[in-house]
Nucleic acid binder design. Structure first.
Length: 712
DNA sequence: TTAGGGTTAG
């Protein structure tokens, strides 16, 4: 048999395929057009999802001049299956009368490729051409409107559905509609659609359950789940994954454990989604070891499972473990996504690990995840908490669309870094960025005013919050204002303001207690402490705070009373003060009077030397704070050996002779007044910047001054 | 057709 001149277009295998279908190929001429041949070829192209073969058959059809109009539907599907929506559309547009199935295939392909706008315009084109949509059209179009976040468009399509009388019975349509309304928080409407279906199935019920959990109505989700089980519908892995999230949000360990049992008995016990939800359930209930066990039983964790376990560790304040889990993930076959990066950045932010944060930033830039708003916010937060407010600002400015959370983080960054003026400036210009303040914006801005002593500005913002937003200030806002006024010594004014709070919580009273302590107002401190303990009798921090205040005033009998009271109540002591510093890729931590470091002798020598030199510059030890972080056993240790001083001494020792680099130390509690004064002088003495991050903020000491302006 | 993981504040 002579080969056809068209053979190069098709491979031998394909030739064999059509040769078999041809009855009598004419020698020397193109194969005759044969509809059955093309149908079989196009079916095969669609099955094998092969774009190159689809193009060849298409070309072949053009070359033979075969009118492919009747084959258009097949050709469109072959292109769509091969992932080429644009070529499919071209063929589609040439067809005089595409089949409804072809319209639907086009719409759902656009959705699959996240080209939602085109999906919706396709639906509109259908209406213009007076093509009657069918049930499949509706279910895909609802998904398109849901993806575009256009509730009104979706509603209008719902209207068409009702007009055509197709609305109630079809499960696919109803599920898509429940999903659409749920995504817009319209649970009442979602539930009406759900109720209208007589014979429900697991997908429909799961869509409603997910709607409720994603809108914070977890109790309702449990209700729908109960109804579903009672009506004999069997849950699948999607249902289990979702309902466990409802239990996790409600911290309903009892129901969660029952569902865990049901999963173990089901065929879905090894599926990853329900297992991932179980992780979250146990983590939310404070059972991190159970979460770890479940994770360890997952054979090949995917990105979601890795992210979940990193988040669990973070929630349990095990940031170091969260980071090492992230490293394990990098070595696995799964790649981090935006969820993973924002979670991991939160761990970096919490530990103020600048270099780790920068590595993740680099990864985000490389993978294009740097445009994700969650990643941006987490980066702004991390840089802010690492004292790199310039970088935080750069990341914020790099966002194409400004985002409220990242702006809130930036405001807080400026607050922490002692630039209250810029924080307030940002607050005032946010409207021009098209962003409206939320509760967190006010908390952050007011706390910026508080940290920078901007009393009048804080007052103005607080009043404007009520006037402009007509919202009642929350306890958090009252706490900020009490803190602002109290720190500035206006305790009576703070007390008057507090009286206006409808139902002040312990956060508000603790703000007053803290301010009273700063100003040595014993009676007010006692009153505030009493209120805190009424609201939370187990608040050990309050006992410690009172005890420290008595100590700073030299009222030792009261100190002893407090300690006895704590012992009686079985409360644990406050966490001991720890300071740490990163040197040569290792973390070196110190507690007060700690001599356990291998270079202990050298560190103490260095510290003595620094203290002597700074005394010469006017350093006078402030002995009021001796007990601040000392245990009874260490009371005889001089004030000089506070943890942050040891960390600074080690930093000076390690940095000597090396290229310039600021000394960065961290402390788990707030930095003490004496150490604060001392570090200012050390920065001048050694001609280097000292950066100290304490529990609340950053202090950048340079040339004898601190960025906080001595107000923290 | 339905699912699980994410950023800020006191």
């Amino acid at each position: 048999m002579r080969l056809s001149p068209f053979l190069p277009i098709l491979s031998t295998r394909w030739y064999a395929c059509y040769a078999g279908a041809l009855t009598a190929p004419a020698l020397g001429s193109p194969p005759p057009a044969n509809i059955n041949l093309y149908i079989s070829l196009l079916n095969r192209c669609a099955e094998q999802r092969s774009i190159s073969q689809t193009r060849r058959v298409h070309l072949h059809m053009n070359q033979t001049g075969f009118p492919h109009l009747s084959l258009g539907n097949k050709l469109v599907v072959a292109y769509l299956n091969s992932g080429d929506v644009d070529d499919a559309r071209q063929v589609f547009d040439e067809m005089p009368n595409p089949h409804i199935v072809t319209w639907n295939a086009m719409i759902s392909s656009y959705i699959r490729h996240k080209r939602i706008l085109e999906a919706v315009s396709m639906y509109k084109l259908m209406l213009v051409k007076r093509i009657h949509p069918d049930e499949f059209t509706f279910s895909t179009t609802f998904r398109a409107f849901s993806g575009m976040r256009l509730i009104n468009g979706g509603r209008a399509v719902h209207g068409h559905l009702v007009v055509l009388g197709l609305q109630s019975k079809n499960l696919h349509v109803s599920s898509a509609l429940v999903d659409l309304y749920s995504k817009f928080g319209r649970l009442r409407e979602a539930h009406i659609v759900y109720d209208a279906v007589d014979v429900k199935d697991v997908v429909l019920a799961t869509a409603l359950i997910v709607g409720y959990t994603q809108n914070g109505e977890d109790g309702e989700a449990l209700g729908v789940f109960g109804e579903m089980v009672n009506s004999g519908i069997k849950a699948n892995d999607f249902t289990f994954a979702s309902i466990l999230i409802a239990c996790a949000n409600l911290k309903d360990l009892f129901s969660g454990r029952m569902i865990h049992g049901a999963i173990l008995k089901s065929e879905f016990c090894s599926n990853i989604a329900p297992r991932t939800s179980l992780l979250s359930l146990y983590s939310n209930s404070g059972l991190i070891e159970d979460s770890m066990k479940i994770f360890s039983e997952i054979v090949n964790p995917n990105t979601v499972a890795w992210t979940a376990i990193i988040g669990c560790l973070l929630n349990s304040h095990r940031e170091e473990d969260a980071l090492s889990m992230f490293r394990s993930m990098i070595f696995s076959s799964e790649s981090p996504n935006a969820f993973t990066l924002s979670t991991t950045l939160a761990a970096c932010s919490s530990l103020a690990l600048l270099n780790q944060g920068k590595l993740i930033h680099a990864y985000a830039l490389k993978t294009g995840l740097d445009t994700n708003r969650f990643v941006i916010s987490a980066l702004v937060d991390t840089y802010g908490k690492c004292g790199q407010i310039g970088l935080a600002r750069m990341v914020f400015d790099s966002a194409i669309v400004p985002d409220l959370v990242s702006l809130n983080s930036l405001i807080y960054g400026y607050a922490q870094n002692g630039n209250g003026v810029e924080a307030v400036r940002l607050f005032h210009m946010m409207q021009s960025l098209g962003l409206g303040p939320n509760d967190a914006t006010y908390v952050n801005t007011l706390s910026a005013c508080s940290k920078s002593g901007m009393i009048d500005e804080g007052r103005r913002i607080f009043s404007s919050m009520v006037a402009d937003h007509k919202s009642e200030p929350s306890n958090d806002h009252y706490a900020c204002m009490v803190d602002l006024l109290g720190r500035a010594g206006r305790l009576e004014e703070a007390k008057e303001l507090l009286a206006k709070a409808q139902k002040p919580d312990k956060v508000v009273w603790r703000a007053l207690l803290g301010a009273s302590k700063i100003h040595g107002e014993v009676e007010m401190a006692k009153w505030a402490a009493k209120k805190v303990l009424e609201l939370d009798p187990g608040d050990d921090g309050t006992y410690v705070l009172l005890s420290n205040m008595y100590a700073s005033l030299g009222q030792w009998e009261e100190v002893i009373k407090m300690k006895c009271l704590m012992r009686e109540k079985g409360l644990k002591k406050e966490d001991p003060a720890v300071s740490w510093i990163h040197v040569d890729r290792a973390v070196h931590s110190f507690t007060a009077g700690d001599r356990s470091h291998p270079k202990g002798v050298m560190i103490y020598d260095e510290l003595e030397r620094l203290i002597e030199k700074t005394k010469g510059m006017g350093y006078v030890p402030d002995t009021r704070f001796v007990l601040h972080e000392m245990d009874e056993l260490e009371r005889d240790e001089p004030l000089f050996y506070h943890s942050e001083k040891l960390a600074v001494a080690f930093g000076v020792l390690s940095g000597r002779g090396k290229a310039y680099e600021p000394i960065t130390i961290f402390k788990n509690l707030r930095v003490c007044v004496d150490c604060h004064n001392w570090m200012k002088l050390v920065s001048k003495l050694i001609g280097k910047e000292i950066i100290a991050r304490d529990a609340k903020r950053y202090h950048c000491y340079r040339d004898g001054l601190c960025s906080c302006g001595d107000y923290w």
